[in-house]
Design a protein around this nucleic acid. Structure first.
Lengths: 208, 208, 208, 208
DNA sequence: AATGAATGAGGATTCATTCAT
DNA sequence: AATGAATGAATCCTCATTCAT
């Protein structure tokens, strides 16, 4: 009711803060319960803002979940990068260890993304499309690295190796989600990296 | 749609048949839309029985989905078996091809199961527990086969290989779900089998 | 399926036993939750017989609850009787103590009856009518006793005293239900009996 | 029924008014049909707001009925007050007449409360707890009045008299509910007041 | 930039009851 | 004398969303 004694400019900042609170809450709930389970009411209760405020920041529920995915992916990507040193296998292992660590530190992105990817709802929500796009991007990053590692391979072989690389990561992540502490993720990722390297070498050998 | 060719009036006194109709409908819907998306109303509409009849056959929604998982797994398990002939690698590949085929033929079990496995809700549904239990059973089947293949391994190594074997299958399944026809599942499973075999051999070599 | 080796006559007995099991269960549940809360499913679960069997023994839910009231009242009535010895006040107190004890021993009848009496549902169920009838009967028993105790009273005075006598019993029963162990029901009933006696005496004195 | 004389379109932005409409409807229905009989759909139909709006104002059905009890009790309490003039018995009778009148005017509170009090369900509704709490408050009001009336009594005696006073009121209310017009509530309450007064006097006399 | 209130559709589940066996 | 199965209506409650303020 009192007016004039609050700096108008703060608004922007508060708005951004609210948006963040909403995204935090939505991330937590969506990775607990998936798309359908992440109700606006639950997000509202967790972040303390009324449901109508969520609609001020996001067009609809789909928009909110897409934003969650987007932000999670940005955080995830910033956590690791391709190493450029060492021999072929060493570099492979180095990357794998980074991914393993990133998965342990920030599992939301992948958990939520996989949940969306596995669902086959009639009308595809934007959130799922966002995850698939983001994953394509990862693919684009991986492909040249493999080509660099084993120059003699055909495009189809590179594609297959990249697919296998990502599939292994997904599968190991799932194993960790199910198995909990009994799963030694770093060791498994090292094994995966070695297997990939061996496969690449074998492919090159076989084509000669 | 056609009318006249179904006996309108037997109804009542089927029991087992109704249960099966419900399970069929629930399987289809749940593997399309996950746990939360599989509403009782949807299942009821698809199987033709009123919602209240579903509750005669199943205690609640959770019980229904758990039954879906249980039945799907039994069907899936019966679709493949350990081969007993050939060299180690050949046998490995033979198993992998069977699994690939089973995944292509009846993906319901794994899709639904993985969706549940990824969720982390505060009170875990019995359906998820059922999937985890059933997966443990698959583990028990796999372990002796690996031990047979590479007799020199320690328990921990066998466990790690079995985990990696299943993780690869999960990951490749996810890849197929996302990538669709661009994914050559049999080729990837063959690659996975080879990688597994190589890893086992490498492990034995390193421990000597 | 086997036939001939069971005496046909047992049927009657089994039927009676089932009926009793149903009534026992219905009594317990109805005094816990009232008329609307006593669902057939709950009764079925408690007595172990399927819901359809309840409908074999009772026409409908209303009929079942009416039977519960009827049986409870018979049990309750058989638990006490008018004493014929002693002076006026002593007899009054003796009756009151019996009622107190009966209420403590078998509270179902009154609890359920009062619940029904307080409800004002549009269509009066038979069960409520049954309770009111049964209470009228108690009234008929009480009236001559009062007239005997204080012969000079008018009909209206006797009616008022009987009403007050029953109201006190009802109210003390409610107090016991709410207050639990902190309520000394025998002492309160003794007080009530004395109060009644005094009131009767005062009435006679005032009319002279 | 008449149409045209209500402004159709204000709606929204009332809040307190809606809450009141809901409480009014719930009070009427709950005192007719009890806790289980007061369905949200019935309340919704009577107050004109959709069921979901009821849940904006009240957490759940239990919360709604508890609020009904709370408000009814406040209204009921404000309808009478302790008189300060006259002799002991005159004051007692004056209070009793006020209570009788309040019961005749606004019986909702007590009817609904007694129904809840008589139920013994496994998980007690908050509404019942509210009634018991509110009744304790009435007790606290009554106790000093009795102590004032008969100063020589022990705590236990005062407690017993207060219990009997309330029990009588409850019982007479029930009698009125069942007996309808054949019950002269004011006369019975006067009798009850006299009985209470006599009992107090007798208690004091006996302890000397 | 935010929110209190509202709303209709739909969520899971239970209801009393029926009927063929 | 009993029961497995079914059924439509009703139960409480949550859903995503809107809108006036």
């Amino acid at each position: 009711m009192a007016r004039g004694d609050k700096p108008q400019r703060r608004r922007r900042v508060d708005g951004e803060a609210s948006r963040t609170r909403i995204l935090d809450a939505a991330t937590e709930i969506a990775s607990e319960r998936g798309y359908e389970g992440a109700s606006i009411a639950l997000v509202s209760a967790k972040c303390g803002l009324p449901a109508s405020s969520i609609y001020w920041h996001f067009k609809d529920k789909d928009d909110l979940i897409a934003a969650v995915i987007e932000r999670s992916f940005a955080q995830w990507l910033s956590a690791w990068q391709m190493p450029t040193e060492g021999t072929g296998r060493e570099r492979m292992v180095a990357v794998a260890m980074q991914i393993a660590k990133a998965l342990l530190d920030a599992p939301d992105f992948l958990r939520l993304g996989l949940m969306l990817a596995l669902e086959r709802r009639p009308v595809e929500p934007r959130a799922r499309a966002m995850f698939v796009a983001v994953r394509d991007q990862a693919f684009e990053t991986l492909t040249p690295a493999i080509r660099d590692l084993a120059p003699g391979l055909t495009d189809a072989q590179v594609y297959q190796l990249a697919t296998y690389a990502i599939a292994g990561a997904d599968g190991l992540f799932v194993a960790k989600e199910i198995g909990g502490d009994s799963i030694d993720l770093p060791a498994l990722f090292e094994m995966h990296a070695t297997a990939l390297y061996d496969s690449a070498v074998r492919m090159v050998a076989e084509s000669e």
